[in-house]
Simulated scan of single mutants.
Amino acid sequence: MPRPFDVTTETSAGVADVVAAFSAQEYWLARLAAYGGDSMTLDSLVVDDDGGIVVRTTQDLRQEMLPGAIGRLLPGDTAITRTESWRPATDGQVHGEFTIAARGVPSSGAGTMVLQPVPAGSRLRVRGSLEVRIPIMGGRIERYVADLIAREVPQMQQFTASWIAGEA
């Protein structure tokens, strides 16, 4: 059964600045280095003339990167591919969608993102669900990943604000 998640976070960076960062290859390389080291790669970054952004990354999930029982359960060549697409909206917000696909594990995830202006900067809301179709352990892995997303979304938006300010 898919596990839903819903994460909201605010940063001091404005919507236009965040979108400009999301459009820059340098930003993605810095973010991936900060959050994945050599286990994450930037597969593609496409910025359309109309302001749309599509970014795809892959993370190699080596067994030693995961908690004990989960790491032992997954094959050694497990990799997670994330695709995010962003498009500007007429109301000052930016809307996005994401997908998560895994190689080596019967699992998937998808959801939506909304980046909106607030008086002190911007607010990002990420809503989605993920499903790991492994008998007995699937729910445990889903819970682990949902908790990880809940921690990482605010951290990555803080990283974005710091990168924009020239501090990252």
Rank of each mutant, 00 (worst) to 15 (best):
R3P: 15
L66Y: 00
I70V: 09
V47I: 06
P135A: 14
G52Y: 02
E64T: 03
G37Y: 05
P88W: 10
R72G: 09
P135W: 13
G121P: 05
G166L: 03
F5D: 12
S122F: 09
V153F: 00
P4W: 12
G68P: 09
T57W: 01
I141T: 12
P75K: 15
S12R: 06
W28P: 01
P88N: 14
G104A: 04
R133G: 04
E167A: 08
A34F: 02
G104S: 04
G71I: 03
D48R: 06
Q63H: 00
Q158V: 09
F98A: 03
P154M: 09
D147E: 14
A168G: 04
P106Q: 11
A146G: 06
E152K: 02
T83W: 05
R56P: 07
V153G: 08
A89D: 15
G96E: 00
L124V: 15
A79S: 14
S129A: 15
P117E: 04
V114G: 10
R3K: 15
V94I: 09
G121C: 04
E142I: 10
P67A: 00
I80V: 11
A165H: 05
T11I: 05
W163A: 08
S129R: 12
S107V: 01
D17Y: 08
T90C: 10
F5Y: 15
M156K: 06
W163R: 07
P67E: 04
S129C: 07
T11Q: 01
T8P: 09
V114R: 13
T11E: 00
A168Y: 03
V55T: 12
R56M: 04
G138K: 04
V19I: 03
P119D: 15
P135S: 14
T160F: 03
A13D: 04
D43V: 05
A16S: 14
G121E: 05
T81M: 01
L45P: 03
I141Y: 10
P4L: 14
T90L: 15
L74W: 05
A120N: 12
D77H: 05
V19M: 10
